[in-house]
Each structure stands twice: as structure tokens, then as C-alpha cells.
Design a protein around this nucleic acid. Structure first.
Length: 282
DNA sequence: CTTATTCCCTGATTGC
DNA sequence: TGCAATCAGGGAATAA
């Protein structure tokens, strides 16, 4: 496995986990919860709820749906509550048999009535679990799902109109579009031939159409590839994705652009590492 | 409403 | 060789 900074679960990665879990845990009952002892600096894995209340809220509940909203994953319980998970940077949600070897960086375990377990691991402890009635209880309002009909050229036009923020920052903003992270933002800007540093207000009508199509294209390819595993990402079965083999610019700094052979450049946009081709992207 | 900055956390990498 | 400093980043909080 290639070394480097961690890769972060974005829409395609979370969707891959969702599909894996839907096929395996739908209809199962949660029989127990185990919170792993803290290692390093103590950071609660349960957000906005104490352990006893969480256990009481999920124990015995039946899993009636496995959902995704943006980068949030949720188990819909028959109690009408959502057990919401966010993996942030290094989180994983692994389906294991109860006798499987211990996982490193374990933070919480949901035990199921078929003897399997859902293990939440997280090296950097940015992720967490919530128990809530709705996504709006745990996050600011999320924009449309980019792979749904709710994501339109018109909506993207409004999101960019008059804005002085870089186009990359705008498509990374979960309130504008839900689910795009650093990998797919860079790939979408390349596919649309737009310099990621360009201000939103300076993107033309034709380019907005191209960007709309590009966002959908790169995310669909990501889902088809079962996500990108540059280092840490793994699906619910502990397997890596393949999207890292198809990226055109992300973490290809100094390597030749596949289109024009100009070396890919890396800059900071909105505090995030940003990769682009200075020739193809204007 | 906007945009920019800081913070959280720890394994990998870089620098001396 | 060793050990400290630096880096990565999603999203919330804060500042302006």
C-alpha cells in the first residue's frame, strides 16, 4: 500500500459502505453496544449523548434501513431513531464476525443478533456516532445529493453566483452540495477544465454546465470503483477501493498530465491541498 | 448573509 | 541513528 497522508471517506466511499451494509444487516436486531476504552487523549465517540442513554436507545432495536446523506451514514431503527455515523478522516465501519481478531483503533462495537458485529474504528478520533431523530439534529443544513435529481445546473448556478470564494471551496461546502470532499473536488475541477482557484462569480454558464456534469461523472466513477484507497479507506468488509487508480490529478503532484503532459501542480485552496493541471484548467 | 482562520487528533514523513 | 517538528484534513466554531 502506498504511503502518504490519509484519504478521507467522501460520498462514493460512504455509499459503498452503505450498500455493503444494506445487504448484510437489514432486519437484524442490535443486541448490545460496547464502547472501547480510551487510548491517548480522551475524546468521546458518542456525540451529544451519554453511554447509558445510547445503549438504552439502540439495544433491541431492529435495523429497518441503511441510509446515506452526504458523508453521513445512518441506520434507521424501528424506534424511529437514526443511529448516525460520520467517518470524518480515518473512520471505518467494519462488519466482522464476533470471533474475528481485534481491530486496531477500535472505538465502538454494535453487536447484532446473527452473531456479527459492526466495529467503528477511527485513528484520529474525528468521527463519531449520534442517536437522533433527523440529520438536522447533528449537522448544519446539507445541500442536494449530487447524484439525485435535486442537483441541477440551476442550483449550481445559484451556488456560484456572485461568490468571491474559489470554485473548489464552493463545491466542498456541504451546505451547497452534500458529499464532495478533497479528492472528488479536485477531480471534478479537472474534468470540467476549471482552475479550482477561480472565483465562483467568474465561472461562465457553459462552464457551470460542464462542472455539473463533471461532479456527477467523478462521483459515479468513484461509486463504480468502490471508493478511493490511497491509504486508510476500507469498505465494510475491510477491502480497499480502486478509484485511486483512475484519478487524474489528486496527489499526482509533479507527474505529467494525462492530457497534455504538463506537470500537475499542488497549491492550497481554502486551506486544503489542491491538485490541478495549469495548462488544461483555466 | 459572506469569507477566512483555528482547532481537534495521531501516524507518517521530513529535517537536523 | 534518533527525536522533534511538520503535515494531512471534515466540519464546527469563531472572527471580522
Amino acid at each position: 500500500m502506498k504511503a502518504g497522508p490519509p484519504d478521507m471517506p467522501e460520498l462514493p466511499e460512504v455509499e459503498t459502505i452503505r450498500r455493503d451494509l444494506e445487504a448484510r444487516v437489514l432486519g437484524r436486531h442490535i443486541t448490545g453496544v460496547v464502547i472501547a476504552p480510551e487510548t491517548g487523549k480522551p475524546v468521546p465517540v458518542l456525540k451529544g449523548i451519554d453511554e447509558a442513554s445510547f445503549r438504552e436507545g439502540v439495544a433491541g432495536a431492529r435495523i429497518e434501513g441503511v441510509e446515506r446523506r452526504g458523508k453521513y451514514l445512518a441506520l434507521r431503527l424501528d424506534t424511529r431513531l437514526l443511529l448516525i455515523v460520520h467517518l470524518r478522516m480515518t473512520g471505518a465501519l467494519l462488519r466482522r464476525t464476533a470471533d474475528a481478531p481485534p481491530d486496531r483503533f477500535l472505538r465502538a462495537v454494535l453487536k447484532l443478533d446473527d452473531g456479527s458485529e459492526l466495529r467503528f474504528t477511527d485513528i484520529r478520533k474525528f468521527g463519531g456516532l449520534w442517536l437522533a431523530e433527523d440529520y438536522s439534529d447533528v449537522t448544519t443544513a446539507l445541500g442536494p445529493e449530487p447524484l439525485s435529481e435535486g442537483f441541477t445546473v440551476e442550483g449550481l448556478t445559484v451556488a456560484l453566483a456572485g461568490r468571491k470564494a474559489p470554485v473548489k471551496s464552493i463545491i466542498l461546502d456541504q451546505r451547497r452540495i452534500a458529499g464532495i470532499g478533497n479528492i472528488y473536488a479536485d477531480e471534478a475541477c479537472f474534468a470540467a477544465a476549471i482552475d479550482p482557484r477561480r472565483l465562483g462569480a467568474k465561472v461562465t454558464e457553459a462552464e457551470i454546465e460542464a462542472l455539473h456534469a463533471a461532479v456527477r461523472e467523478v462521483l459515479l466513477r468513484g461509486v463504480e470503483s468502490r471508493g478511493a484507497s490511497f491509504r486508510d479507506y476500507q469498505d465494510a468488509n475491510g477491502k480497499q477501493g480502486n478509484m485511486q487508480m483512475y484519478v487524474k490529478v489528486f496527489r499526482r503532484t509533479g507527474k505529467p498530465c494525462y492530457t497534455c503532459e504538463t506537470p500537475i501542480e499542488r497549491v492550497k485552496v481554502g486551506g486544503r491541498s489542491t491538485h490541478f493541471c495549469p495548462t488544461c484548467q483555466r
